[in-house]
Simulated scan of single mutants.
Amino acid sequence: MVPICVQCGTTSNPCRCKVVGPTLGFLAFAAAAVVEWPVGALVYCFKHMKGRKIMAHPATVIYPSVTNAIPI
């Protein structure tokens, strides 16, 4: 099963719909989350704020940057 994400109402292209960017963004998010969430949970045991930042990184940095880099 391949996930397909659709984002409508965007102004980055003439048809106002994005499929490729959000789908690749989700796949990049999932790959980063597999690595960063366990590491963040371990770091959280010792440094709470640093652990939270590590666990939030896929959602706050990776997904938006990949999604916005591809206009279609």
Rank of each mutant, 00 (worst) to 15 (best):
N13C: 08
G25E: 03
W37D: 09
E36W: 06
G9D: 12
L42V: 12
C8N: 15
A30S: 14
V39H: 04
P38G: 10
N13T: 07
S65V: 09
M55Y: 00
V66H: 02
P3H: 09
Y44S: 06
K53D: 00
P38M: 11
I54H: 00
P22N: 08
Y44W: 13
V20Q: 06
Y63E: 04
K53A: 06
S12R: 15
G9Q: 12
P71Y: 05
V2E: 13
Y44F: 14
I62Q: 01
P58E: 06
A33T: 12
G25R: 03
A41T: 08
M55D: 01
R52M: 10
R16F: 09
A28N: 06
H48W: 06
F26K: 06
K50Q: 04
F46H: 05
K50D: 01
V19K: 01
K50I: 10
N13A: 04
L42F: 12
P58N: 06
T60W: 03
P22V: 08
A31C: 14
C15P: 00
G25S: 13
I70T: 04
L42D: 08
V2G: 02
A31Q: 12
P14A: 08
G21D: 06
Q7S: 15
V34H: 13
C17F: 09
M49H: 02
V43I: 13
G51K: 01
C45A: 12
T11E: 12
M49K: 03
I54D: 00
A32F: 14
F46V: 06
I62E: 01
V35R: 11
M1A: 14
T10L: 06
L24Y: 11
A30F: 10
T11F: 13
F26T: 07
M1N: 10
Q7C: 12
V6D: 03
I4N: 04
T23A: 09
A30G: 11
E36I: 03
V61G: 00
V66M: 05
A28P: 05
M55C: 11
N13D: 05
V61T: 11
A28I: 07
G9S: 13
R52Q: 08
L42Y: 13
C5N: 13
V2C: 05
V34P: 02
I72F: 14
W37C: 09
I4R: 10
Y44K: 05
T10S: 14
V2I: 14
A56S: 10
F26P: 01
K53V: 01
C45G: 14
A32K: 02
N68M: 12
C17M: 15
L24M: 15
V6F: 15
K47A: 03
C17T: 15
V35K: 08
A30E: 11
S65G: 00
K53P: 00
K47G: 00
P58V: 04
A33M: 08
S12A: 14
Q7T: 15
A41C: 13
F29D: 07
A31I: 11
